[in-house]
Design a protein around this nucleic acid. Structure first.
Lengths: 227, 227
DNA sequence: AAATTATGGACCAAAATTATACCATATGGT
DNA sequence: ACCATATGGTATAATTTTGGTCCATAATTT
């Protein structure tokens, strides 16, 4: 028998060495391993040996193999941070907006100058006549909300709200946009925005917050209520 | 030993190399990447390969493509977080917490399991006997709030709240900690936390939210009222 | 000696890549 | 206002790469 510390040979050895490469992070999450034939050349082993090693790696949930495509790492090290926009559901997004937006509107009413409000109204006009273009409305809507956020005069809140908007634009919600944003809905949302604008001009905090909340509740219903 | 590492090939390789360029700042925010045909020439790959790489980059929120115009970087580096923590005042920080924390507490009451609440109580006990150690109290306080955030079962809110806490710990407030956090104040804050815990156990949303709000208002006063 | 494992080769089927060509939009100059 | 150009979007077919499978043989372990 050789030294007990000798690296294992055969398919078990290949398994261990690839496993180490993955766990040590040399191959990151979702990265593709070299092809079986390539690995065979590197490890100076037959392709069949590589295959049994890869089968074991697959059983250990370290790797996933796709016919005709390659072998991909499914192991996720702790350091590889999650993508928040991937794991946020549309409902959780609305839940979060419920926390932020009413507060933003209150701050706008307290802090915004008339010049700010004029700017806000200009942006709001961009959403006019977008009843038949969900994409255009969506962009105008986002611009309106971002302007609102910048009018609250709190850079941290504005920054956070921009993060929320980034996530929102990459969310599954986008896929449903065309179904949810019918001309009627767009008209309704636009009317909401104008009522909000009026409430802000009157510096009526509670009314403005109520409008925002009912607006979000409606969006919530739209999300749940349709096919 | 062989070299298990290799430069990845195909669209995955193009993806990785462009990704690195973006993250390393070689292409800044809103900057336009070279055209697909240009990239194809640079990487010596077919345009289709470049396109699948760009599609993956777009899905990873690193890039946005505009029909007829180009492909633009949407990734913002973390250095911006430093900026925002520099320009956020302690008052604005509290203002922002005012928006988030009452909402988090409401969600905790709705969504947290009893096991979650037991965990929360364990963390709360860490703040016991820290009356004379502002630093220890501060850490225990942060741990309590982060646990609260994870109990609300909304990953987005938890993520946002972690950002807020990061900024909070880099903030000027830290410098005033020793002045504000007298033994009396720490005792008072701890009592607040226990009252909050009781309200959460009783699933009393309004009471819990009131406690949080008055707690933050007190912190606001402490910030303004002292030397 | 028997059983297990590794080897090398051949072929199959799925997926990716390549190479073109053409369409639709955006931009800048005339 | 128009035009030429550059850009991303789409479609198609041929080629290459890749994992999946099988087999006869050699090497290793039991």
């Amino acid at each position: 028998m050789e030294h007990p510390l000798q690296v294992s040979t055969g398919s078990a050895g290949v398994f261990n060495r690839i496993r180490e490469s993955i766990i040590s992070g040399q191959y990151g999450y979702n990265e593709r391993l070299p092809s079986e034939r390539d690995l065979a050349a590197r490890f100076k082993a037959a392709r069949g040996t590589i295959r049994t090693a890869l089968e074991q790696l697959e059983q250990a949930n370290l790797v996933r193999r796709k016919f005709g495509s390659g072998t991909f790492v499914t192991y996720r090290s702790d350091t590889e941070r999650e993508d928040i926009s991937e794991e946020t559901s549309p409902l959780e997004l609305i839940e979060t907006r419920m926390a932020i937006e009413p507060h933003i509107v209150r701050l706008v009413i307290l802090n915004a100058s008339n010049r700010d409000l004029n700017r806000l109204e200009e942006v709001l006009k961009l959403a006019e006549g977008t009843e038949n273009d969900p994409n255009a409305f969506s962009m105008a809507d986002e611009a309106f909300r971002m302007t609102l956020a910048s009018c609250c005069q709190n850079p941290l809140l504005k920054w956070i709200y921009r993060l929320i908007n980034d996530i929102r634009s990459h969310n599954q919600w986008s896929a449903r946009k065309d179904h949810v944003l019918t001309p009627d809905r767009i008209r309704f949302y636009n009317e909401d925005h104008w009522r909000l604008m009026v409430a802000i001009r009157r510096r009526d905090q509670n009314h403005a917050a109520d409008i925002i909340i009912s607006h979000l509740k409606q969006a919530h219903r739209d999300l749940l209520g349709q096919d």
